[in-house]
Design a protein around this nucleic acid. Structure first.
Lengths: 190, 190
DNA sequence: GTCTATATAATGATAGAC
DNA sequence: GTCTATCATTATATAGAC
C-alpha cells in the first residue's frame, strides 16, 4: 500500500524548477530560457509537456497545494496538541527566514502578482490561503472552542503576513525574531 | 513666499505616470511604450529626460517620498491629537480599499520586487517605511511615552501590511473593514 | 520525448532630423 | 524638446528533424 517508485519525469522537473523560480523572480520574469537552463532541457521541449506558460503556472499552483497539504498533515501527525501544531506554522517565519528576508512569502507574492495582472489563475493561488485558514481554524477550534476559531485563524495569518512583508521590506532578521516571539506569547495567552 | 506657478513639465508627467503604472503593474512590467501611450509622448523622448529606466525608478521613489512627507505633514497639521493622527494612518486601509484589494500596498510591492531583483534601489524604496515608522514613533511617544513608541509604531505597520496583504490575496473587503476595526480598538486601548 | 531552427512581437536603448 | 527610424536582445510560441 506504500507509495514507492514514483518516477520523477521531465514534467515534474519543469514544475519544481518553475516553482522555485516563480518564488524568487515572479511569474512574469520567469522565462522558459531560465527554467530550461536550470534543468538542462531545450526551450522547445516545454511545449511537449505544456500547452503554454499559463499551464505551467496552473501546474505550479497545483504542486504548491499538494506540498502544503502534505506539510499540514505532517504537522498534525507529528504533534498531538493544537498548540504545538499552530506553533509549527508560526515557526516557519524562523525556519525560512533567509528566504523570507530575500524573497518574501511565496503565497502572497504570487497572489499579488496575479491580482495585478488580472490573471485567471488568481483565484487558484488564493486557495492556498484558504487551505491554511481552514487547517488553522480546526486547530483553534480544538484549542479553545468553535466561536473564535476562524477569527483567530485569520488574525494569525494576518500577523504572519505582516511580519514577513515588513521583515522583507526592511531586510531585518531581528524584526522577524521579535515579532515571532510576540506571536508565541499571543498563542500562549489564548 | 507661497509656492506658485510650479510648472508641470514633461518630466513630471513621466514620473507621475510611471508612479501609477509601477504601482499597478510592477516596475519590470511597466514599459516605456505603456508610459508613453499614457501621457502621449514618443518612446524616444524618454532619453532626453532620463538616462535609462533605472533613473525613472529613482525619480519615482523620490516622488513617493515627497508625496508621503506632505501627507504626514497634513495629518499632523489638520489633527491636534496623536490619537487622531494615527487614526488617519489606519484609515488609509478604508479610503484606499479599492486599490488595496486590486493592487495591494504600493510601498511593500515595490520593495519586494526590488528585493527579489537584487536591485540597487531597494534600500531607497525601504526608506518609505522608515518615514512612516519615524512619524508614527513620534505620535506614539506623544500619546503614551517614549519607551514603547517604536514598538507600537512597528507593530502597527506590521498589522497594516498584514491586513492589506491578506485582503488583497483573498479579495475580501469585509476582512479589510473588520481587521481595521480591530486596529482602532487596539489604538483606543493604549 | 527531445532537439534545432525559426516566426513574431515586445523590450530598452541609440542616432539623428526637425 | 520632441519626433521617427532603427538596433540588439529577449520573450512566447511553432514546425519539423531525429
Amino acid at each position: 500500500m506504500a507509495e514507492v517508485d514514483i518516477k520523477t519525469t521531465t514534467r515534474d522537473h519543469i514544475i519544481a524548477a518553475a516553482d522555485e523560480l516563480i518564488y524568487q523572480q515572479g511569474f512574469s520574469k520567469t522565462s522558459f530560457a531560465h527554467i530550461a537552463e536550470k534543468i538542462s532541457i531545450s526551450r522547445g521541449n516545454f511545449y511537449y509537456h505544456f500547452k503554454n506558460k499559463d499551464q505551467i503556472l496552473d501546474a505550479v499552483i497545483h504542486f504548491r497545494m499538494a506540498k502544503t497539504h502534505t506539510t499540514l498533515q505532517q504537522w498534525e501527525a507529528l504533534n498531538s496538541t493544537p498548540h504545538e501544531r499552530i506553533t509549527c506554522y508560526i515557526n516557519v517565519l524562523i525556519t525560512h527566514q533567509k528566504d523570507i528576508l530575500r524573497f518574501g512569502c511565496a503565497m502572497s507574492n504570487l497572489s499579488n502578482e496575479l491580482s495585478r495582472l488580472d490573471h485567471l489563475a488568481k483565484g487558484n493561488s488564493a486557495m492556498l490561503f484558504v487551505l491554511y485558514r481552514t487547517w488553522l481554524r480546526r486547530q483553534f477550534a480544538l484549542l479553545g472552542g468553535k466561536q473564535m476559531a476562524d477569527k483567530h485563524a485569520l488574525h494569525l495569518i494576518v500577523q504572519w503576513q505582516g511580519i514577513a512583508t515588513l521583515a522583507n521590506a526592511l531586510n531585518d532578521p531581528n524584526l522577524l525574531t521579535q515579532e515571532t516571539a510576540k506571536l508565541h506569547q499571543w498563542l500562549q495567552s489564548l
